[in-house]
Amino acid sequence: MVETTNISVEKIWKILETVTDPEVPVLSIIDLGIIRDVKSKRDEIEIFLTPTYSGCPATDAINMNIRMGLLENGFSKIKITQQLSPPWTTDWMTEKGKQKLKAYGIAPPHSKQIVCSPDSFQKEEAIQCPQCNSYSTRLISHFGSTACKALYQCNDCKEPFDYFKCH
């Protein structure tokens, strides 16, 4: 049996670091910034999770992976509470997470949050190509392979790439 004092909360955070986002497997859910809190009460662990997008199909998979990870480490009473407010923002992604994204070939979200507005044909933010570091890139589509990404192309090396868009 695992002892359930405050020490276990720290241990839980360590385990959660090994749970990854199935859609962007280089990122742990800690990197993503979706774990808001971990609480332990007697032998029960409660995890507060804020989903990235309302319809993100990864959310269910992440919930299951959290359960699996904790079960493997001897924790069996697990409650995952979805916390919608305040809404998740890419500002919550860790610096380490952003570096991992770039190394993986996905342009990380801007560190200075660019407010998305409904204005049509607005001037796009300059996104750096994760391959050749050029800033001469262009938006192909605001909607990419998953809800969190937009599709860009580099004008210099011509490679298309994903941009983890500000949210």
Partner: peptide, 12 residues
């Protein structure tokens, strides 16, 4: 509040 961020992209 959560959905509004998504809808902003839809409007655009």
């Amino acid at each position: 509040a959560k959905a509004l961020k998504e809808v902003t992209y839809h409007v655009r």
